[in-house]
């Protein structure tokens, strides 16, 4: 396959599974993140699994100066340029309550950082007449809850951004998939109490790839989260505001 995937937040296990899946198809992968040692290991892995090109690239959602270089590197490749964005951060709500200045970082990691990157990438996708963006939002963004509403609001902002970007790129032959994962078995959720129906990163990566190929707009993964969130969104606010879920 003559395509290139820019994968941001590539050290996460969901991103790793996705990078492996597109590598097996022979794509080029540019793996963005901060832990360069870990990314180098993943790049070797992707190469050995069949990636046409696999390189680690420095990406920091809080430092937009790192963005242009990645896009320039992608432009060296022929064919479609795609991006899959897995970045985000979720400090405990209690930590944020103690130090409200943490909000700026959460919003940068989960919303404004990736949005700025995609805004810079959009003209490239338009110029090439195609390309897919997969943006990982969250079910937490569907309704603000006491447990993680700062993270949720950042992801909600990102989801709205993705919907607008879809509106824009569709005109030029591009496409945007908004992904809302439920509980996924990652380092972020390891050992957390109260999780149920936890999906493997590989299953989620498979859903992402399928959604990109079928040009789906918004997917929940695993699929049944669509119905769980449908119910949660429809709980009347006078009741919801008293609930703790």
């Amino acid at each position: 396959m003559n395509s290139t995937w820019i994968i941001l937040g590539a050290t996460s296990s969901m991103a790793r599974a996705f990078a492996r899946a597109v590598s097996a198809e022979g794509s080029a992968v540019l793996l963005g993140g901060r832990d360069s040692e870990d990314l180098a290991a993943l790049a070797s892995d992707c190469k050995l699994r069949g990636a046409r090109v696999a390189e680690a690239v420095a990406f920091d959602a809080r430092n937009p100066k790192t963005f242009a270089k990645i896009i320039a590197r992608a432009e060296e490749e022929e064919g479609e340029i795609n991006a899959a964005v897995f970045v985000g951060s979720m400090p405990e709500q209690a930590e944020i309550d103690a130090d409200p200045s943490l909000i700026a970082g959460v919003v940068m990691d989960s919303h404004t950082g990736p949005a700025t990157f995609l805004q810079m990438l959009a003209p490239v996708i338009e110029a090439r007449g195609g390309g897919t963006v997969i943006g990982v939002a969250s079910v937490a963004g569907d309704r603000g809850r006491i447990g993680n509403y700062v993270y949720g609001s950042a992801k909600a902002g990102f989801a709205t951004y993705l919907s607008g970007l879809r509106n824009r790129l569709t005109r030029a032959g591009g496409h945007v998939v908004t992904v809302k994962p439920g509980f996924v078995d990652t380092a972020m959720t390891w050992g957390l109490p109260g999780l149920f129906l936890v999906a493997s990163p590989e299953a989620v990566a498979g859903d992402l790839l399928k959604a990109a190929k079928k040009k789906r707009n918004t997917i929940y993964t695993p699929f049944f989260w669509r119905y769980i969130m449908l119910i949660i969104r429809h709980i009347p606010e006078p009741i919801f505001k008293k609930m703790k879920i």
């Binding site: 050290t11 296990s13 790793r16 832990d35 040692e37 870990d38 290991a41 990652t186 380092a187 390891w190």
Partner: peptide
Amino acid sequence: ARPERQRA
């Protein structure tokens, strides 16, 4: 424990 990177 289930580390995902060497650093972890």
